[in-house]
Write a protein that binds this DNA or RNA. Structure first.
Length: 137
DNA sequence: GCCAACGTTGGC
DNA sequence: GCCAACGTTGGC
């Protein structure tokens, strides 16, 4: 199983909306690398849900429930969506400042590739963040 | 609201 | 194939 991070601006689609919706199609990705990351996701993979711009923190965990398929918001174009369901909110959100402050997270894509909206997370990074979030799955 | 970073586009 | 211009993301 692989780990990922997905970013959303909370004024557009907050984690709470995923909780309400129970399932959502992650559409609108228009970056090749982010799209390729979506295509690498397998059912059952877990993703950290990050609020960009507002909050700037990890707030929850989501699970891949449906693997990549054509993005209906871009008919005829070569983009993909993946389906996610909420797993749980983090007990304590983990802020960008916290991530920056932890040496174990210095290489995270969130920091190194800050403009990439769908990115891989290593198993060790995953562990560190869930510990900081005081969250057990 | 500004601006840095950086991916993409298009002219040559 | 290079590179300048442009658009977008996301932090501040």
């Amino acid at each position: 199983m692989a780990y990922w991070l997905i970013k959303s601006e909370p004024n557009k689609y907050p984690f709470s909306a995923l909780v309400t919706d129970k399932n959502t199609s992650w559409d609108g990705v228009r970056n090749f690398e982010a799209r390729n990351n979506l295509r690498s996701m397998k059912r059952g993979d877990l993703a950290l849900f990050y609020h960009s711009n507002i909050g700037k923190e990890f707030v929850g965990v989501a699970r891949v429930t449906g693997e990549a398929r054509p993005d209906p918001s871009a008919p005829g174009e070569d983009w993909s969506v993946v389906d996610f369901a909420p797993v749980q909110a983090l007990t304590a959100p983990v802020t960008l400042a916290q991530v920056r402050a932890m040496p174990a997270l210095a290489e995270m894509a969130l920091l190194k590739r800050s403009r990439l909206s769908v990115a891989p997370v290593t198993a060790s990074e995953w562990k560190v963040i869930l510990a900081a979030a005081r969250t057990k799955l």
